[in-house]
Simulated assay, not measured.
Amino acid sequence: MTISSELERLHSEGQDDIYELVSYVKSNGESQVTARENSSRALGIKPYSTQTETAFLTTLNHALDNVLNTNRRCIVQHEVSIAHVFDGNTEYSDLFYSGRFDFVVYEQEYKGTDIPILAIELDGKEHQENDIVMQRDARKNEICRRHGFELIRVENSYARRYNYIKDILIQYFKSVKSY
């Protein structure tokens, strides 16, 4: 399907500024549309980190360092494929192989192997208002539940709240009794 045919398909009767602009350019000069790479969160593709995610990563690492005042060492990875966290999956294969966790906390082993212990998702308004995003979140929650893996969801508005993040980590490590 070409850009022109898509524009015709989407055009409705009446005023349509974009349609008129494209028609003008096509009749009065060259028209060329540069292809863009897909970069949609809904598709599981994010070409860059947002300021909120960067701030959250800083807050999370700082809180993790202060919560783990033992010999336990953990690191945080950003944008981790779901398939890299689990060995296998029987359902939701589309999300399993294309989806990502915003953050995964790994325990560093002495043998050089990092073991994923916890995933954290930053959720904006779209996670409460967009049906497609909510369905994807439910499927991601189910994958984690079936694998016995903790997935914690944090609202974007709490990304910079150190004490809130610290409390989440304290509660998590207390619940697994390895704190």
Rank of each mutant, 00 (worst) to 15 (best):
L7R: 13
Y48C: 01
L68H: 05
G112H: 09
L10C: 09
G14C: 00
S98A: 07
L95S: 03
H84W: 12
I117D: 10
S5H: 12
R146E: 14
T58K: 14
I120Q: 05
F86I: 12
R9H: 14
F56P: 02
S12E: 10
L122N: 03
V154K: 06
L95E: 04
F149M: 08
Y92F: 10
F173H: 10
I3V: 15
D94G: 09
G44A: 00
R36L: 10
S175V: 10
Y19W: 08
Y110D: 06
E13S: 14
Y97C: 12
L122D: 02
S5D: 14
N61M: 12
Q128S: 15
I168G: 04
S178I: 10
F173E: 09
K177L: 13
F149C: 06
Q32S: 13
G14H: 00
L57Y: 05
S39T: 07
E30Y: 06
S178T: 09
T34C: 01
R41E: 04
S93R: 14
D94P: 09
Q51D: 15
S4A: 09
V154M: 08
E91Q: 02
S40N: 03
N61S: 11
V154H: 05
L122C: 05
H84C: 11
I152F: 06
Y19N: 03
Y24E: 08
A63M: 13
Y172K: 13
E6I: 15
L7Y: 06
T58F: 12
N38I: 14
R9P: 02
G29I: 05
L151S: 04
A55S: 12
D16C: 09
T70D: 07
I18W: 07
Y172C: 11
I168D: 03
S93Y: 09
D137K: 03
R41C: 01
I152E: 03
I170N: 05
Q32A: 10
V105I: 15
I75S: 14
A35T: 04
E129V: 14
V80N: 06
K177A: 14
S5N: 13
Y179T: 00
G99E: 01
G124V: 02
Y24D: 09
D114C: 14
D102G: 02
V176I: 15
G148M: 01
Q128N: 15
H78P: 00
V104H: 02
I152S: 05
F173G: 09
D123I: 07
S81I: 06
E121K: 07
E121T: 02
R146N: 15
S49P: 03
E8P: 01
V176A: 06
Q77G: 04
I168Y: 13
A35P: 01
F86G: 08
Q51R: 15
D131G: 04
D17F: 10
I170A: 04
R100G: 00
E13Q: 12
N156H: 09
R136Q: 09
I18L: 14
N156E: 15
Y179K: 00
M1Q: 09
S93A: 07
T52W: 05
S12D: 04
V85I: 05
L122E: 03
R139Q: 08
Y110V: 06
V33M: 00
E91N: 01
Y24M: 08
N71P: 00
F86M: 12
F149L: 08
N66C: 12
T34A: 03
D114E: 13
E20P: 00
I152N: 06
R36S: 07
T34Q: 03
Q135P: 01
A55E: 12
D137Y: 02
E155A: 15
V154L: 11
I152T: 12
E155T: 10
Y24R: 10
S81D: 09
Y179I: 04
